[in-house]
Write a protein that binds this DNA or RNA. Sequence first.
DNA 1: GCAAGGTC
Length: 689
Amino acid sequence: MTGKVLVICEKPSAAAKIAAALSAGRPNKREKHGVTYYEFSLDGKRFVVVPALGHLYTLKNTRPLHTYPMYDVEWVPIHEADRNAKRAEPFIRVIRELGKDATEFISACDYDIEGSVVAYNVLRFVCGNGAVQKAKRMKFSTLTAQELRKAYENLMPRLDFELIEAGLTRHELDWYWGMNLSKALSSAVETAEQRFVKLSAGRVQTPTLKILTEREREIEEFEPVPFWEIAVVLRIGKLKVKAQHERGRFWDKTEAERAYSSCHGHNARVTKIESRRYRRNPPTPFNLGDLQSEAYRCFGLSPIRTQQIAQDLYQAALISYPRTSSQKLPPVIGYAEIIEKLGKIGREYGRLAAMLLEQERLEPNQGKKEDPAHPAIFPTGEPPTDIRGAHLKVYDLIVRRFFSVFAPPAVVESTKLHLEIGGEPFKLSGRKILDPGWLEFYGKYASSEEVQLPDVKVGDVLKAEEWVLEEKQTQPPPRYNPASIIREMEAKHLGTKGTRGPILQTLYTRGYIAGEQIRVTELGKQVVKALAQYCPEILSEELTAKFELEMEAIQLGKKKREEVLEEAKRKLAEILEKFRLHEAEIGKKLGEAQRVARARSRVIGKCPRCGGDLRIVVSKRSKKRFAGCSNYPQCDFSLPLPQNGLLQPLEQVCPACQSPQVLVRRAGKRPYRFCLNPECPEKEKWRGK
DNA sequence: GCAAGGTC
């Protein structure tokens, strides 16, 4: 053997696949300091394939961030900057030890700007000694053996420096903008009120907050307009149906009343029947965003919780890599084999799998979105052994979705009956599923419901039972919920698949937003207002777009990193200077808003004794927390609260007893609902056990 | 303290 090749991979699972592909399935698996790596020989050389764990290095300020602006940052091992990143340390150690006598280096991280930076930092900070100049690059778009081997055969002779430069710039720009603006916000409150409030702004979080604030404004400014609707309840045999006036909304009350009195007391006559058949195509394979959206719709799981569950399922080898944006399933994953294995898991899966395997062809209905390193999420076919609760629900959703994408389209017939009631035109719409196709595979997660229509023909007279004139009001646009805002972020290219959930969580943690139906707090509004005045750039998703253009220019060699960074510093200096001049007034408003938001976040519900606000209070004497009335000492109503974990008031009252509830979040545990009523019938059940 | 990005 004449040399030693060190292959650096993005993560442990990628290292396993890359080693297997290059060694034709025969790598020697080894372990050092708890890190698994692989060895084999190839082309007369000794290969060592090691994993990173995503970014092993991060940007850190070289001196304390007491004042702004501040641009002095350096790359440090991530465990030195983040106490929760201890597990990264052994990876650096292992790579250092194995790389000592390496003669060649290959960057085999994901082929995107972050992956390029992961490998580059490892090469320059861990391997040293010209590793950067010597290193070659593997370029692949999925981690399949075939493509990995091809990538090795067509090895790029040098690192992808253009991509690396773009990535380094992205990190620094985000740090400059985010840290400095965050510091400016917090400093403003400190100047005005001599107290510290943790505030933040950033390229992704702030435009997201802006979108939510805009919706808040639309809702506040919304003026409802009254309208009238006319419905007639018809009975045909056992079937009871509701026909609507063809005009839908009447904006004029007298017109509505005139139409109502015309039809009142009359039966309906069928004047025309229109029906049309159409196909509803199967859904596309899940990427992380789609899974988060569906898990929220079907189970009410928050995007961040779904992400955790998917990660757990992935680590249990039950599903493929979940942090993907791909909606495509390449044939190499082996459709039939997975479906067969899933079929053995249970009777229902068995029945569905058999139906799919009987089809002439297995071809997934793929979506348009792609991912540089991973296919869409799919079940591996491994039998789940010990999964329960939400994990089981998400697993089932993923399996059924996987089945569905191979199933035929559903055939639906929609029918519209035109009716005449006392000279007024009415309509009755129905939907019938002629062939369920994929709907049967998606099962209870499919939303399409049939609307049954009576079997009638033109000229038939249907008996009317009830005539209804209803006054309604136009509704404001709906509030975003965690799933819909994440979809919006994706549509506007804000954040990445893995960061959208956590960034939304940051907005909650800062107290900028609250509630399942997301409302922007007074604090969130004031942050947006202050930034709108002094730094409109950070509010708009265009900053992300601008960043992308700059990154592209760097990748094309049209711009230099230093140039882009200097430009950002100049811009920020200008913005921050103006901001500082108004620190006191900005800080006063932010501080006041923070108090309002904090007070509101403690309100759990109404006091059942006096109607005041029931709030979370911490006892001065015992330091214990309890729910107390805002009218204390006039009203001394109180209830006990759990003492451990973070409490989050819930909008919905307890389904069993209609009392207010809080969500209890404890580190590493599943959040649970706590009903304030000590006598809640649900708790009685538990006591009995 | 404070971002956004990767990872488990």
